[in-house]
């Protein structure tokens, strides 16, 4: 009974803060503007080529024709870049042909599944991370006044309170993620229909240097698992930062600085890219981990799903142990 009510209180505290609603709204506005851009951008080169080969009459035949055309160009071409590009195109076309799927631009998708994939790119995921850090800190830093934790005064077991707070943050992150995915799905559905869940995406699962096309739908369970682990990790991490900093601005700065500092550093600096698999923040975008796209771009094959689960799991356990030890040590001091 008491726990439910503390959770309700947290929920009310979240809802009644206009900033939080504003933050959610910003994500939705960004998604709408992304969709508008995608719709406006029109056909890409591949679509134009396919149209030239009779896409509207029979899209499977147009794939076949374009593959043959590309093969002819490849024979004549001296450029390695062009050859690579065309063989990549052919691989995609072949996949679409075999699975009888309609082509969709990967850079400007408008169908539900295509747009959901785009909505989970690194920029939107990074932006969502920024927003959730603000939200969690805004929610729990209120417990600290003059560096005193006034939530201690509640007649409630500390472990229980920490547990509720972390789970609440985790659910909040999950809620945010579901909201923008569902919203992306609906936007796509309104504009171009649902699309195919089996649409191929580039992945570097078998070879970190050479991508191949894999079924998007088959990767979804792993994406959800690693994303959930990351959400739980962030919930634990931000809560720990708040407890250590005991001050809203300090906590905000530290959380943003550490998380984004490490994410950006692992993307930009080779020495840090090499050890990115040990940094839990590197796994912020589940899609890029499962497909090894991130590992490919920073040349680190160890940035994969298995290591993600391991490192995030260990990090969560370490943070929880720190929280437990902190509570035990505080209790001991008080008994002196």
């Amino acid at each position: 009974m008491t726990t439910i009510n503390y959770t309700c209180f947290l929920f009310k505290r979240f809802i009644k803060n206009k900033l939080n609603l504003g933050l959610i709204l910003i994500i939705l506005i960004i998604l709408i503007s992304m969709m508008i851009t995608n719709v406006k951008s029109g056909n890409d080169d591949m679509q134009n080529h396919l149209n030239h080969f009779g896409y509207s009459q029979n899209y499977r035949r147009s794939y076949h024709n374009l593959i043959q055309y590309n093969n002819k160009i490849m024979i004549k071409s001296n450029s390695q870049d062009i050859t690579n590009q065309l063989s990549n195109d052919n691989e995609l076309l072949n996949y679409l042909y075999q699975n009888n799927i309609q082509y969709e631009s990967s850079s400007h998708p408008t169908t539900s599944y295509g747009f959901m994939k785009e909505a989970n790119n690194s920029y939107i995921t990074g932006f969502t991370l920024l927003i959730i850090i603000f939200m969690i800190i805004n929610l729990f830093s209120n417990n600290y006044i003059e560096r005193m934790n006034i939530s201690k005064l509640l007649p409630m077991n500390r472990f229980k309170k920490d547990f509720i707070s972390i789970i609440f943050s985790f659910l909040l992150y999950g809620f945010l993620w579901i909201i923008y995915n569902v919203f992306s799905y609906i936007l796509g559905l309104i504009i171009s229909g649902s699309g195919s869940i089996n649409y191929p995406i580039t992945a570097f699962i078998n070879d970190i240097h050479n991508g191949s096309y894999v079924n998007f739908g088959s990767l979804i369970p792993h994406m959800i698992i690693i994303k959930s682990m990351f959400m739980l990790f962030i919930a634990c991490f931000v809560y720990l930062v708040i407890i250590i900093c005991k001050n809203r601005i300090m906590a905000l700065f530290s959380a943003l600085f550490i998380s984004f500092g490490l994410i950006i550093s692992s993307l930009l600096f080779a020495p840090i890219s090499r050890i990115a698999q040990w940094i839990p923040f590197s796994f912020f975008n589940g899609n890029d981990i499962v497909t090894l796209v991130l590992g490919h771009s920073i040349d680190n094959a160890k940035l994969n799903y298995q290591n993600g689960i391991l490192i995030l799991g260990i990090s969560i356990v370490i943070i929880l142990i720190i929280l437990i030890l902190k509570n035990i040590s505080v209790n001991k001091i008080k008994r002196i």
Binding site: T2, N5, Y6, R13, K16, L154, M156
Partner: peptide
Amino acid sequence: NWFDINMSGMDYLKLIKTQWK
């Protein structure tokens, strides 16, 4: 000054009543 000014008085009264049984 400790109050979260976004909350209502009723929210606090309900929380305290529940927590202190």
